[in-house]
Amino acid sequence: MVSLRDATLVVAAPGLWFGYFLLVYGVHALACRFLWPSGPVLAAVTALTAAALAAEAWPLRRLARIEPAGFYRAAGLGLGALSLLATLWVAATSWMVPPCG
């Protein structure tokens, strides 16, 4: 039977993206205030988020055994893929644009 924890895992990926988005925005704001180089931090945060999204998708495999219809697994993987796409999309922006212009 699919548990509440499994269901939470299914919708976790967009939350990770939102955390990433706020973190990038916050890091950028701090970097501009104190003239810190933000590139390494942003790279690390992006890599961590991508890894977290991949790690979050791994336990979804378990759902294939307990849920034949595949709804939760497909929803979890779909949301994970969309979140990864959105993360990379935002990351690309932060690489291409000077942060404090």
């Binding site: 988005f21 959105a86 999309w89 922006t93 404090c100």
Partner: peptide
């Protein structure tokens, strides 16, 4: 700031997906 503009522009386009 410019990067803020770009970040939110990117996110605004992403919601079209």
């Amino acid at each position: 700031p410019l990067l803020s503009l770009s970040l939110f522009s990117a996110a605004s386009m992403a919601v079209a997906i």
